[in-house]
């Protein structure tokens, strides 16, 4: 019913309408990306980029422990953040969906994601106010006499994780909540009729049914977290560098664009692997 055979004039028109967006994406996304991929196979000598095809950058990545450690740090932090965020967000989404009266739910949700709308850079900075040596937490704890010396939280991995979890709890609460309210109450009634208690109903019925939503949210968390430079740079400091920080270092002091390009490709591969793992896992769940 939508479209039968296209006249030549119609086809020209259709291409004409789609062309600007397609050309934009080609020119400013596909071409730059391919250029960067090519560049990762060149190398830097002095301040010059030499266009000789080689795998030096990738070989250096696997032989230089500082670089490889960046990927390991990135993966560790991302996995910790993803797991913690899901564990914190799921109960929150569940309480909002189940315990909060219907007419207040939308408000509770908007409230739960309100700090989401602070500027991204500012959000990390505000955690610095809370976590730094003379920050809110340390002053409170010393004031109460619980600790003598201020805790070193800022400029550690802990601070990075806290900053990330704060952001992603809001995101995941949103995705998990929308998953929970779509669930028909009939499933739970059926489980209860068959003699399941509240815990069994949750574990065998509700949780598996919301798993696709959790996985989608978790994958989103993984992708956004592993590619982020701002939060680790502000909160984590320079102690344990993550991959995006190392990429930015190549650009700055060293002006080693080919190495930055190679590291970006490695970052992308990590995301692709995560996607493949998630996708396969989801498919098994559906079968």
């Amino acid at each position: 019913m939508t479209a039968t055979t296209l006249e030549d004039a119609d086809r020209r028109k259709a291409w004409g309408f789609a062309a600007p967006a397609l050309l934009w994406t080609l020119a400013f996304f596909v071409v730059p990306f391919l250029f960067m991929a090519a560049m990762s196979l060149w190398k830097r000598e002095g301040r010059e980029i030499v266009r000789v095809w080689n795998l030096d950058n990738y070989l250096r990545f696997f032989s230089e422990s500082a670089l490889l450690q960046g990927l390991v740090n990135s993966l560790e932090i991302t996995v910790i953040v993803t797991v913690l965020s899901v564990l914190l967000a799921y109960p929150l989404a569940w309480i909002i969906a189940e315990r909060v009266p219907k007419r207040f739910q939308r408000m509770a949700l908007i409230l739960a994601i309100l700090p989401f709308w602070t500027s991204y850079v500012v959000r990390s900075y505000s955690w610095l106010l809370v976590l730094s040596k003379n920050g809110v937490i340390n002053q409170m704890l010393t004031g109460l006499g619980l600790i003598a010396e201020p805790l070193e939280i800022a400029s550690t991995r802990t601070a990075t994780v806290i900053g990330f979890v704060h952001f992603f709890v809001m995101l995941l609460t949103l995705t998990i909540y929308s998953n929970l309210i779509q669930l028909s109450p009939n499933y739970r009634r059926a489980a209860a009729d068959l003699g399941a208690n509240a815990f069994q109903t949750f574990w065998h019925v509700v949780l598996p049914l919301t798993l696709p939503g959790i996985m989608t949210g978790a994958f989103l968390t993984f992708v956004l977290c592993i590619g982020d430079y701002v939060t680790p740079q502000i909160l984590g400091g320079n102690n344990e560098l993550v991959l995006p920080q190392i990429i930015m270092l190549q650009l700055g002091r060293r002006a080693d664009f080919p190495m930055a390009a190679a590291l970006s490709i490695i970052l992308m591969l990590a995301v692709t692997v995560a996607y493949v793992l998630c996708a396969r896992w989801l498919k098994i769940e559906r079968a």
Partner: peptide, 12 residues
């Protein structure tokens, strides 16, 4: 990731 989009554009 935005970082990779930005790097590609910057390189080009």
């Amino acid at each position: 990731s935005y970082l990779i989009i930005a790097l590609g554009l910057l390189a080009l």
